[in-house]
Design a protein around this nucleic acid. Sequence first.
DNA 1: TATGAAATGCCATAACC
DNA 2: GGTTATGGCATTTCATA
Lengths: 178, 178
Amino acid sequence: MPPKLGILVTEFVIMVRKAMKSANLDSFDRKLLECVRRNNLEPARSLAEKVGLSESSVLRRLRRMRLEGIIIGDIALVDPALTGGAITMHVLVQLYNDGHIRTDAFARNMARREEVVAAWNVAGDEDFVLIVQVPSMEAYDAFTREELSEQSHVRDFKTLISIRPVVDTLISRRPLRA
Amino acid sequence: MPPKLGILVTEFVIMVRKAMKSANLDSFDRKLLECVRRNNLEPARSLAEKVGLSESSVLRRLRRMRLEGIIIGDIALVDPALTGGAITMHVLVQLYNDGHIRTDAFARNMARREEVVAAWNVAGDEDFVLIVQVPSMEAYDAFTREELSEQSHVRDFKTLISIRPVVDTLISRRPLRA
DNA sequence: TATGAAATGCCATAACC
DNA sequence: GGTTATGGCATTTCATA
């Protein structure tokens, strides 16, 4: 398949997906999402009772939503102690301000680092907010040296050591640690 | 059951759980976790091939890890467009420094707010880092007024508006929006 | 086009070795 | 940990509105 056609097909698929996705969800769909969002192993029979549909309709709707990308995945949640680093840091980063090139390059570097759980490009005094999880201070030190201190386009950075999470409705999809 | 006994039983259950949890996972367990962490609807037969065990062993191990709290949940991931607010803010909060009472009260307030997706108590110049998701600037304005500006124990706060997430291995467990 | 009901086939469960 | 028999659940097909 020639590249141009490939791109066209890709775009078409995306258009179809969006079109399908924007097909509004009715109240049954929303109720089902509310349920499987908390527990996706619940049998269809039980879901059917809760939402007021037959078993087959429930299964049809769930399959449709999975195909359309409304349900984007089905996963087991693993104890964070096994996944996350023990120490969480927040890092505020300022770059030297010369256009998008350095911003994009920095973003790509962050995406490559295992320690970076999440990162945002932000407006204001700072340029980036990072959430970094590491098993030890040595690991954090290595990270800051390699990605921040020794990088000439990083003007400054400020570290906020997390004492404890007080709200946490987020879960990580990072790979398990050895 | 008298209260004291109830507490003892509760503590015992917690002890047992921790003891069970600390029972180290072998390489089979870890491989299984790696799999179900990405897809928990994959049949045991398929998992058995991947990790090199029989179907029943796979199912036994998964059930054990669910009971022991190593697997803490099984959920469907819903398209973030349906769940999260459109706008993400990072807020750095400084409180007036008079002990733990205000810190705890603030943490409890944050836990109550739907807008607050995550929050950490941090060391350094700031006291809290918040991740706030809102559907509009009006909603953010209301949030800051109610929880920050009008609160006498908040010394100062600084808002970083997220332009775009550049790394995102986190997913939200917040309820669906209407 | 989407539903509900019944037949089929797959998968988890629980008893064994 | 592996093997086998059972029960439950999802899938498919069909009839219906």
